[in-house]
Amino acid sequence: MDLQLTNKLALVTGSTAGIGLAIARRLAAEGARVIITGRTEARLAEARAAILQETPQAEVRGVAVDFGQADEVTNLLKEVPRVDILVNNVGIFEPKPFAEIPDEDWLRFFEVNVLSGVRLARQYFPLMLAQNWGRILFISSESALQIPQEMIHYGTTKTAQLAVARGLAELTAGTAVTVNSVLPGPTASEGVEEFLKKLAGDGKTREEAEADFFAHARPSSLLKRFITPEEIANMVAYLSSPLAAATNGASVLVDGGVVRSI
């Protein structure tokens, strides 16, 4: 299937590993010109090399930015003044008991997980409306719908992303611009692999640790395994394309059936 993304300019935040890198690779493979972001030049170089190894003809460049710093986001916007596709993927998470989460953590989580996307959309969204085409995607989480008790602050920011996305979508009525959220379930990211290694260190194999996780931590999963970043990227690539014109203001689950809803 041709997703008709050739020469579209896409910015993917937090894209040197995991879901973000998988999205950047998929968009590049579809012919999009891709801008990746990360906190260090070294990670950006590694990610760019990985994309070019898979798609040698890809046009991809990196911009170093810490999305927890407003001035660095401002510099990114100056360097990348417009895009056709914005994928707000950057995010942080950290398990912590609710009573031990200080104001500083709440503010830090909102700064990175919510305001990063708001700041970028504030510049790019009006330009998309003016050209009458564009795609904005917020990579949220199933935790937006089922707030995890071990990181309530994280889940709250993921819910806030859904609200921002839906609000922006309301402003697109009658245009060819869409704004959607993608809600991954438990995904085999770098952090998850480290988590499984720790469990395996307790005498379990990786496979046993994964089975134990889905038996006790995510028993509602129908997939019964961690989702791959590539499986998330496939959905994002479709929603980024002209073929997805009729999907707007949606919260699209790619969660392996964890969320029990109709």
Rank of each mutant, 00 (worst) to 15 (best):
residue 249 G to W: 08
residue 252 V to A: 06
residue 131 Q to N: 08
residue 201 G to A: 08
residue 45 A to L: 05
residue 139 I to E: 01
residue 208 E to K: 07
residue 230 E to I: 11
residue 211 A to W: 10
residue 64 A to L: 11
residue 226 F to R: 02
residue 258 V to K: 00
residue 259 V to T: 15
residue 2 D to V: 08
residue 149 Q to I: 12
residue 39 R to W: 04
residue 190 E to S: 12
residue 123 Q to D: 12
residue 129 L to I: 10
residue 200 A to E: 04
residue 131 Q to C: 06
residue 105 D to I: 11
residue 58 A to P: 09
residue 240 S to F: 07
residue 107 L to I: 15
residue 251 S to Y: 09
residue 236 V to E: 00
residue 197 K to F: 01
residue 230 E to L: 11
residue 119 R to K: 12
residue 3 L to I: 11
residue 196 L to K: 10
residue 118 V to Y: 09
residue 224 K to N: 14
residue 5 L to F: 05
residue 129 L to W: 02
residue 114 V to H: 02
residue 114 V to C: 01
residue 55 T to R: 03
residue 62 G to W: 00
residue 236 V to G: 05
residue 50 A to N: 04
residue 145 L to P: 07
residue 150 E to R: 12
residue 124 Y to M: 05
residue 130 A to S: 12
residue 171 L to Q: 15
residue 125 F to T: 01
residue 140 S to T: 12
residue 177 V to Q: 03
residue 164 V to E: 05
residue 100 E to K: 14
residue 190 E to V: 13
residue 60 V to K: 02
residue 194 E to H: 13
residue 49 A to Y: 09
residue 132 N to I: 10
residue 238 Y to D: 03
residue 108 R to H: 09
residue 146 Q to S: 12
residue 262 I to G: 11
residue 262 I to T: 14
residue 171 L to N: 11
residue 47 A to G: 10
residue 60 V to A: 00
residue 159 T to G: 14
residue 17 A to K: 15
residue 167 G to N: 15
residue 122 R to F: 06
residue 191 G to Q: 09
residue 52 L to I: 10
residue 83 V to A: 04
residue 34 V to K: 00
residue 165 A to Q: 09
residue 63 V to K: 00
residue 220 S to I: 09
residue 112 V to A: 02
residue 46 E to D: 14
residue 27 L to T: 04
residue 54 E to N: 00
residue 57 Q to R: 13
residue 180 N to P: 12
residue 22 A to I: 02
residue 223 L to N: 10
residue 218 R to A: 15
residue 170 E to T: 15
residue 157 T to E: 09
residue 205 T to F: 04
residue 117 G to N: 06
residue 16 T to L: 07
residue 159 T to P: 00
residue 93 F to R: 12
residue 262 I to E: 13
residue 205 T to Y: 08
residue 220 S to G: 01
residue 102 P to A: 14
residue 241 S to V: 11
residue 246 A to G: 06
residue 42 A to S: 11
residue 215 A to T: 15
residue 65 V to S: 09
residue 225 R to T: 14
residue 81 P to K: 11
residue 236 V to M: 07
residue 61 R to F: 10
residue 145 L to K: 14
residue 74 T to A: 13
residue 210 E to N: 05
residue 59 E to Y: 04
residue 117 G to W: 05
